[in-house]
Amino acid sequence: MKIIVAIKQVPARDSQLRIDSKGKWIQTSDLAFEINEPDAYALEAALQLKEKNGGEVVALCAGPASAGQTIREALAKGADRALHIEEDNLDTLDTLGIARLLAKAATAESPDLVLTGLQSEDLGYGQTGVVVAELLGMPHATIVMEVERKDSSVRVKRELENGWFQYVELPLPAVLTIQSGISKLRYATLMGIKKAKTKEVKRLTAAGLGVPLQATIAIDRVYPPEKSKQTQILDGSPKEAAAKLVEKLKFEVRAI
């Protein structure tokens, strides 16, 4: 079974974000990057499926040259090879634009399964996987917690709201968007890191794929959110701040 996993490189979770001079995106030059968290779980799910059923795991990433770091990490964890759609200015593209690139690159591979994360931590559209499925003409399931391979189908556990779940069966080939936290992530072994250096990373471009870099929706401006509540910040040393809070809780909120 051939599994493609879409992985995106995003700013590290604890990054201090600064808006760039055009006010349309963030300054990326001084940031550390990492794999989008749910994508790490999508990769893990793919590796586990391969271990059970055999086959091949191909990492697929659209991003600048520096995304190569994230791709190497995926290879070190056990992906067999990678496709890197290397483009610099993908921040201005939208989900349909990205999905067209990913779908075109995936088509050439004839995968049995395409896994994506359920949501990116930077843009947070939560939809690229679903759009890829539509472009590929494949069925999909979202917010997937478990994947079980059947003969010519997959049975997946989907998360619904408020603690509800549902099992859904889909014929292969199919696209699944994977939820964070569904299993324990593996670490790359030293051996894995060594092996990764010899694994194939195929470089693709939008032009080579014949996909125009064209956006339908546009981000006009990025800015800090307005506060919906007036927060009273209780300052001072930890002891002073704690004392102030207890006073508020005791005399204003009357909860102590």
Partner: peptide, 20 residues
């Protein structure tokens, strides 16, 4: 969660992007 599951597909049918 249900809308997340189908609305992006629906928008794609119209060559559009769901602003989610």
């Amino acid at each position: 969660y249900q809308v997340r599951d189908f609305a992006p597909k629906l928008a794609t049918r119209f060559n559009q992007v769901l602003v989610s």
